[in-house]
């Protein structure tokens, strides 16, 4: 039996209005993402990859159409509900890591737990555990500016995973990294995907990254033009 999709989009449209110009960033997207999938979204710059990620994760709103996450319509949720949903069920990884520069690595990682109300001690213990898993033990009290790019992205991944989210949205997670570090990061994501059966949606234009995915979506001009299972 086919499992219930974790994310389902129906005729999703997103139009950016800028003065007299309007840009159709997403055009009639219909898509289902199943639990445990690792999906790579590829395409040239400006094709709508990041917009899709933002709209499907509830960070942005569609102009028309609908996105269901865990069977719930995002458009029917209030901002507070969406925020709560993101905090509990989603993780985010960004190209430029986006760690809070004023917090240490461990403080960055434990933040999502604190947001959902975990006691600080427990949050710190969980954060330390995941930091160790990420191979960053000994660096936990360092601020982002004192970490290498790879370390920063590991800390960002730890932050994305600390809540054991059902789905992790990753926007060009290796965009700022060298080849070796990129491979290590993707290996890590793949282990988590397989080991924890966590769903990963990775936006990338790097074919080497897409090789780690078990499904590849190719986009052009706001449409999904190809949906293939990885080799």
């Amino acid at each position: 039996m086919k499992p219930e999709p974790l994310v389902r989009a129906v005729a999703a449209e997103k139009v950016y209005e800028s003065g007299p110009l309007s840009v159709r960033a997403l055009q009639g997207i219909n898509l289902e993402i199943l639990p445990g999938e690792m999906v790579a979204i590829m395409g040239p710059s400006g094709c709508g990859k990041t917009t899709l990620l933002n709209c499907f994760s509830g960070l942005d709103e569609l102009t028309s159409g609908e996105v269901y996450v865990d069977g719930k319509s995002l458009s029917s949720m209030t901002d507070k509900q969406k925020t709560e949903y993101r905090a509990k069920r989603m993780g985010f990884i960004f190209q430029s890591y986006n760690l809070l520069p004023v917090l240490t690595a461990v403080e960055n990682v434990e933040l999502p737990l604190l947001i959902v109300g975990h006691p600080p001690k427990q949050a710190r213990a969980t954060a330390m555990m995941i930091i160790e898993q990420m191979g960053m033990k000994g660096w936990e009290q360092h601020k982002p500016s004192e970490l290498s790019a790879g370390q920063q992205q590991r800390a960002a991944i730890a932050r994305a995973l600390v809540n054991s989210p059902a789905i992790v949205w990753a926007d060009e997670p290796t965009g700022n990294l060298d080849t070796d570090t990129s491979r290590q990061i993707m290996q890590l994501l793949k282990q988590l995907n397989v080991g924890n059966r966590q769903t990963f949606v990775v936006v990338t234009h790097d074919p080497a990254v897409s090789e780690w995915a078990n499904r590849i979506l190719k986009m052009r001009d706001g449409r999904i033009v190809e949906d293939t299972a990885a080799k």
Binding site: S57, L59, D79, K80, T83, E84, R86, A87, K88, G91, F92, F94, N98, L100, P101, L111, P112, I115, V116, R159
Partner: peptide, 16 residues
């Protein structure tokens, strides 16, 4: 501003 975006993404409500 970007950091606000991150905070909102990881679960900070508007009020927070």
């Amino acid at each position: 501003r970007q950091q606000i975006g991150v905070l909102r993404a990881i679960g900070y409500t508007k009020r927070m």
